[in-house]
Design a protein around this nucleic acid. Structure first.
Lengths: 339, 339
DNA sequence: GGCGAGGGTTTGATCGTTCCAAGGACTGGC
DNA sequence: GCCAGTCCTTGGAACGATCAAACCCTCGCC
């Protein structure tokens, strides 16, 4: 059976090409009766529009670009994994598809990819997921008027654009308050270095909850370690905390660090409670409490923001964004303090 | 600056459209000198062909379809994650891109997606990654002559098609021999149910290594548990093995099961050695030895097989396939037997 | 009764590429 | 000096959709 085209459908319904096209794209222009007849013809011939032809004319591909980042540690990769799935599903439901592209962690290379994809494939927009302070990718895209959303806030004062993010401070505050509620007082933090904006944000949740519980900022400075991410780092940092601080509970800004803590605590009698961040499979596997990001929700909003810009009625509210609140998944590592 | 087109480049180089097209697609048809001139013009105008236009004419999109499966357990998701990245990178290097589609675990729904993608987007081929015994998707694709590769063997006698897979039996044999080499004799297996072909294959590696070491098949039947995947299952099954078999080492057919074993063994003095399968981030995190699948290599071959069919010179060797051997990643859980 | 308005439909051109059949230049042989 | 053959180039048509403008009614109004 040959491919059904607009022409064929038109002939079958006894109308012109354009009318068939209108039935699909601008139904309000077509008389109800005619539309009905056309729809029947479409059905009979199992007609589906050829996207490349449409794209050639309209310069719209109905495809969104998404980067698959180089696999690094693997633990946090799981986060992206779920986000990826949710984004794909959301986009699909709304008539868009997701095209992957690989790029190393170098802005210029990634920008070259944008250029290529826009020029040759007419991508309609991008979803970025690991923006940094002073990111040159976002400004490049903004300058060119390319629609995009980021999963992650633009931390600097760089131009505004739509974004979705999860409130890290709120998440860590939740975790800390949960531990306070269990009766813990001396709660230490495994944080990231100060130049990391995400880590600094998450740390704030701990600071807020702890100061509300009576600690002073000065005291807290002595109850934390700020180091880069990693299981090994978590192990050594925890040993230090045990020696210097003697905490009854530890809050970590990542599951990697929290896992390191669990490992370090294995040999300890009456081990402190531990809570991680991201609710990765690893956390579930080792019975570690963790702060869970609402990734499906994040993906929904990301796609919504992007498509409202794309399909919107011109009133594109450029500065839209959404900050989501994570929730705490309580597991075995949420022990009450030893008496 | 307006978009550069073939026409524009042709004018600039003082030749016709077709000649420019030939320079790009059939260079052997064009005189060297002319080609040089054309290439210069392309360079100057920063010309890049518009894929939709090409696609409209040739019915080839240079895009491959890849499914993002529903996120289930998360531990094994990490495997797909790395595969995904590798496939994207490989495809990109060879001038193809990866388009994602989401589908639930229902063949008919997925097939409907194929139909849609082929008809509306001219996808050139598919990469499938979770084929089952008696899969209807592969036969549908085969019937229609749609190029595809699977990551995973077609276990049944169903029609042959290109595939790439990792030799699970070899992997488990490697693990078992490693343990034998450490001095273990009584090595138990945490397996999957018999109706699972992958699990059965992996089990065979254990059987082979163990019989070579002097055990009889009958004896081995008493040294295994065959259950579905999961951390919880691993915990309870391990308790049973400890009571009934008293092994000095345990080989598991997945990291989930192996992790369950590690958890169950935490309270045990002189715990048995444990080895998992898949080398997921979880394994690395808890210092668990594990069999690693060569995913990058698998992706390379998958893309190669698919593209040789697509770009090949007609001599498409339909029944190509590749079985890769995994390697063992030795970590702390590879303890020698307690004396 | 003629004229303008406007809803509904048709017509022809167009997007950028490749296919096709035919045209032109150059070489070598007689 | 002509012709065949080779090699390269050329212009027109086609892919399947949308855009823009023209067209044809019917209706209401003066």
């Amino acid at each position: 059976m040959p491919r059904a085209t607009l022409e064929l459908v038109a002939a079958r319904a006894g109308v012109s090409r354009q009318t068939v096209s209108n039935v699909l794209n601008s139904p309000q222009l077509v008389a109800a009766e005619t539309a009905e007849r056309v729809r029947a013809a479409i059905e009979e011939l199992d007609y589906r529009p050829h996207l490349a032809a449409r794209q050639l004319r309209t310069r719209r591909s109905h495809v969104l670009g998404l980067r698959v980042p180089p696999v690094v540690d693997g633990i946090n990769g799981a986060v992206l994994d779920r986000f990826l799935h949710a984004v794909t599903e959301q986009a699909q439901e709304r008539g868009y598809r997701i095209l992957l592209y690989a790029a190393p962690d170098v802005d210029e290379v990634e920008i070259a990819q944008y250029d290529e994809l826009l020029e040759t494939a007419d991508l309609d927009g991008f979803v970025l997921n690991n923006i940094r302070l002073g990111d040159t990718r976002t400004s490049w895209l903004t300058e060119r008027g390319v629609p995009f959303v980021t999963f992650g806030r633009p931390w600097g004062a760089q131009g505004a654009h739509p974004w979705v993010d999860v409130d890290g401070a709120a998440g860590v505050r939740l975790a800390t308050e949960h531990l306070l509620g269990l009766g813990h007082r001396r709660i230490a933090l495994l944080g990231w270095p100060q130049d990391d904006v995400v880590g600094t944000d998450r740390r704030r949740g701990w600071v807020d909850a702890m100061t509300a519980a009576g600690w002073t900022e000065d005291q807290l400075l002595g109850m934390q370690t700020l180091q880069r991410d990693g299981v090994e780092v978590g192990v050594s940092a925890t040993h230090r905390l045990l020696a210097d601080v003697g905490p009854t509970a530890i809050v970590a800004v990542s599951d990697s660090l929290a896992l390191g803590a669990s490992v370090a605590l294995r040999a300890v009698a009456d081990p402190p409670a531990v809570i991680g961040f991201d609710d990765t499979p690893v956390a579930a596997a080792v019975d570690l409490s963790s702060v869970a990001q609402p990734l499906v929700e994040a993906a929904e909003h990301a796609v919504s923001l992007l498509l409202s810009r794309l399909d919107g009625d011109g009133t594109h509210l450029v500065e839209q964004h959404r900050l989501l609140t994570p929730h705490l998944v309580v597991r075995g590592s949420s022990r009450p303090p030893a008496r």
